[in-house]
């Protein structure tokens, strides 16, 4: 395809996130099959595909949360172990227990784990940094709140604030808009776009096809195999959607 022909070795080396030959299987069934993915620096990419297409699994395997059968991900042409400080991961909101005894500010401070390690003391500077991240997602008034008292949208913003606290260059988000209200969705996309404008790279698993073109500049279409990849105008077409969703969705104009 055209976008592959235009991809030079230089863009490959500079890419913050490259996946090659990734295959993941749960039991005997391959959920992700021999997937290649190349994310260009400073882009905002939506990973789209039907349910069970392996979108979340692709991210989890790339990040070592799930062990792949074959293949690997590289970040800035280096393995994950050397790139952790530059990567922020936002898991699905439903993947954690929100009755955990902790406050909003403590969750955001978890984003400083790389910096704090086992021994460094938590200082006023760290707390200020965490507060600034909460402000950026509009949650500064909830800092002392128990996390169990938050709405779904507020929980998602706290997760985003934790990722911001990492000060990463690559943001990988798993369904950041699942089950959140319109106001939160707007707030989150504004933050993500501001990250992109700062030159950082954003990759998000996304479900709502109607907002892809509005929110993102690149797409990665997957249905276990890679279906298409590239700028929205090139890769987000009726043809690629038919290939991924089996002709069940129509692209509205």
């Amino acid at each position: 395809m055209a976008y592959e022909a235009s991809m030079t070795e230089a863009t490959l080396a500079g890419s913050p996130f490259v996946v090659r030959g990734l295959t993941v299987a749960y039991d005997a069934e391959a959920v992700v099959q021999d997937v290649d993915m190349t994310v260009s620096a400073g882009s905002m990419t939506a990973i789209i595909g039907p349910n069970g297409a392996g979108k979340s699994t692709l991210l989890k395997a790339a990040l070592g949360i799930v062990r792949p059968l074959a293949g690997a991900a590289r970040f800035w042409d280096a393995p994950l172990a050397q790139s952790r400080r530059r990567i922020a991961y936002v898991p699905q909101r439903a993947s954690v227990d929100w009755d955990f005894p902790t406050r909003v500010i403590d969750v955001v401070l978890m984003g400083l784990y790389q910096e704090l390690g086992l021994f460094r003391r938590l200082s006023a500077r760290h707390k200020q940094a965490a507060m600034a991240c909460l402000e950026r997602v509009g949650m500064q008034d909830f800092a002392e709140r128990q996390i169990g008292q938050l709405s779904g949208g507020q929980q998602q913003r706290v997760f985003l604030a934790r990722a911001l606290a990492q000060g990463a260059d690559l943001y990988l988000l798993d369904e950041p808009f699942a089950g959140v209200d319109a106001a939160t969705e707007a707030a989150i996309i504004a933050v993500l776009k501001s990250l992109r404008d700062e030159g950082r790279t954003v990759v998000a698993v996304h479900h709502d096809l109607s907002t892809v073109a509005q929110y993102f500049d690149h797409v990665f279409v997957i249905n276990r195999h890679r279906v298409a990849e590239g700028p929205v105008v090139e890769a987000f077409t009726q043809t690629t959607l038919d290939a991924a969703y089996g002709g069940r969705v129509r692209l509205s104009d």
């Binding site: 989890k60 990040l63 070592g64 949360i65 172990a81 952790r84 990567i87 991961y89 898991p91 993947s95 954690v96 227990d97 955990f100 902790t102 969750v107 978890m110 784990y113 790389q114 934790r162």
Partner: peptide
């Protein structure tokens, strides 16, 4: 960290 969010903890190394 692991008790609250295992996936996030993994990515932290």
């Amino acid at each position: 960290l692991t008790a609250f969010d295992e996936g996030f903890a993994e990515v932290q190394g």
